[in-house]
Amino acid sequence: MNNLQKNKLIDNAFKTIGILFTYLGILILAILLYKIIAAGSSRINWDFLTSLPSRKPEKAGIYTAILGTLDLMMLTIIISIPIGIGAGIYLEEYAKKTKLTTLLEINIANLAGVPSIIYGLLGLGIFVRFFNFGGSILSGALTLSLLILPIIIVATREAIKAVPSSLKEASFALGATKWQTIQKVVLPSSFGGILTGIILAMSRAIGETAPLIVVGAMAYVPFVPHSVFDTFSVLPMQIFTWTTRPKAGFAIAASGAIIILLILTFVMNGVAVYFRNKWQKKLGN
């Protein structure tokens, strides 16, 4: 075999490995989904969704966990969206190129890399203890809001950057103030991109477990929360506690809860990808 043939062989071998590895991810995903659906689908019914958690695995449901997740997400949205979009607008449209701005940017990049459990410790120290909100929905939502803020800020900035400067100039030239221009031209044009970022941030938040454990989410919440100061559980928390129980029935219940959590996560991601494609097409024109 000459050199040329040898090189060709190596090239083809690597290509095959590349294909295998690329499909490996999909294969693992398929195994994961198959095993979980096989184990948990028998639990997916109306009772499972509307029952309280229980010590008996076959009776246990995810009612309070789902409601906790919905409440927590709602509050997180209310807190993080205005702050995240506002900060993004500030950095993109107002901030001058000073050292302080550079510091802000480096800081945001760094925050995005801080492990989520550290945010839990922050929440525990500040919201739970210092402000004395306790292990409440409010503490959880504030903690998650800080956690996803970098994602929303970065998405907002990217979306605003994509708005052609000619549109902003046109608005200024007609006598619009900066805020009028942002409100009437910049935000409507960047809406799709910002929305995509928010949904992706939410899909990240909905699966978070570690920071909520630290902040004090409960493993067992037998009642529906009424106020933001109530204790709470969430779907991932419920999955975690069921996973750590030795009784076999709980693994099945956990699988059922995972199916619900994955549906929520995948739907959110799908919607985000849909908006992203639609928005990119619109910008392309």
């Binding site: 549109l167 046109a170 030239a173």
Partner: peptide, 17 residues
């Protein structure tokens, strides 16, 4: 106020979407 009095038309047409 100044820009209301002094209008501007740009190189490339830039209508708002």
């Amino acid at each position: 106020e100044l820009r209301k009095k002094v209008g501007m038309v740009f190189q490339k047409p830039n209508p708002f979407p």
